[in-house]
Simulated scan of single mutants.
Amino acid sequence: MPAERSGAFPPPAQSLLDGRLCLQLLPRSAYSARDPVQWQTLGVALEQQRGVHAIDSDHRVDFDTHPGTLALTPPGVEVFSESAEGGEYLLVRWQLEDDRPGLQHRLESPGHARGLALGRQLRRLLLEPGADPLMLEAAALEFVRLCESMPEGKPGQTDFSAVLHRFAEDFAQPLSLAQLAAGQGQSELRFLRDFTRSIGMTPHAYLLEVRVQAARRMIEFGDLPLAEIALDCGFAHQSHLGSAFRKVLGITPGEYRRRVTGR
């Protein structure tokens, strides 16, 4: 993943452990960049992301990264990546004594529920005004420890690209498990199991994430009243948006608006 992107309100990189660990929340925005190769890198996709990349070569291939995909890149492996829209991504780089020995290639682990949960926790801490530095360091180190047990292969998984596209297009509408499962040609129980395994969260939790992210972008790029944003994003009312926003991001919509706009 790239080191820098342009976009609204990109939180600055957090330097931890006397500069030996760098934590960054990369925003959803277009980018084209080449990753530095000096440090060990672990990242998790918080949103779906499509584009092209080249890993340790000049051969570019298309990618469609689902939320919950954990990626470990050892020092010396160069990654070029570009995307027309990007996707929010939690990235940790470090130079610590317990780096995974002998790893010579990039590893990916899709549907990593623990990685996604820790990534979302770190996002909340990064967005929280005056977050406890000790808590941030502890969460970052817990995230880094995930590389100790990452699998060497990618298990076969159901392709949920069409479902993720439907979430992206119809998030403001009521969506039922039966509708989503029918679109995949699966029973509700099979769909619930496979989606949760592939993405790292349940369909309902993912829909809440998509709605909150949509509201977040409307706050960043416009000045609509929060009550109107709530309805446009599929929430029943403003307080419903507020509780969901706080659950996902750790702050209220009003606090977020004041932070990104100064108003």
Results as ranks from 00 to 15, higher is better:
residue 133 P to V: 04
residue 53 H to N: 06
residue 219 I to L: 04
residue 134 L to K: 06
residue 246 R to H: 14
residue 75 P to F: 01
residue 57 S to A: 15
residue 46 L to D: 06
residue 144 V to A: 12
residue 81 S to R: 03
residue 225 P to D: 10
residue 50 R to T: 13
residue 221 F to I: 11
residue 172 A to H: 13
residue 52 V to K: 07
residue 151 P to M: 01
residue 150 M to R: 08
residue 106 R to L: 12
residue 28 R to K: 14
residue 2 P to I: 08
residue 227 A to Q: 09
residue 56 D to N: 14
residue 72 L to P: 08
residue 63 F to R: 09
residue 58 D to Y: 04
residue 160 F to S: 04
residue 115 G to V: 05
residue 25 L to V: 12
residue 208 L to A: 13
residue 5 R to F: 01
residue 196 T to E: 14
residue 234 G to I: 05
residue 84 A to Q: 15
residue 10 P to C: 06
residue 178 A to C: 04
residue 27 P to V: 10
residue 107 L to V: 05
residue 120 R to T: 11
residue 171 F to L: 11
residue 28 R to I: 07
residue 38 Q to L: 05
residue 234 G to C: 05
residue 123 R to T: 09
residue 7 G to R: 02
residue 65 T to L: 14
residue 83 S to R: 06
residue 172 A to K: 08
residue 192 L to D: 03
residue 216 R to M: 11
residue 232 D to Q: 15
residue 22 C to F: 01
residue 163 V to L: 07
residue 69 T to L: 11
residue 36 P to M: 05
residue 52 V to L: 07
residue 35 D to C: 01
residue 92 V to D: 07
residue 46 L to H: 10
residue 236 A to P: 04
residue 38 Q to E: 10
residue 60 R to P: 02
residue 191 F to E: 00
residue 185 G to H: 13
residue 205 A to R: 11
residue 232 D to L: 15
residue 108 E to W: 01
residue 79 V to Q: 07
residue 161 S to M: 06
residue 184 Q to V: 13
residue 201 M to N: 08
residue 89 Y to R: 10
residue 255 E to H: 08
residue 112 H to R: 05
residue 221 F to W: 14
residue 263 R to S: 09
residue 114 R to V: 04
residue 52 V to Q: 11
residue 116 L to C: 04
residue 206 Y to G: 00
residue 5 R to P: 03
residue 65 T to R: 13
residue 234 G to R: 03
residue 100 R to I: 09
residue 231 L to T: 10
residue 57 S to N: 11
residue 119 G to L: 05
residue 51 G to A: 06
residue 128 E to K: 15
residue 233 C to V: 12
residue 12 P to F: 00
residue 31 Y to H: 13
residue 196 T to C: 13
residue 152 E to C: 07
residue 229 I to G: 06
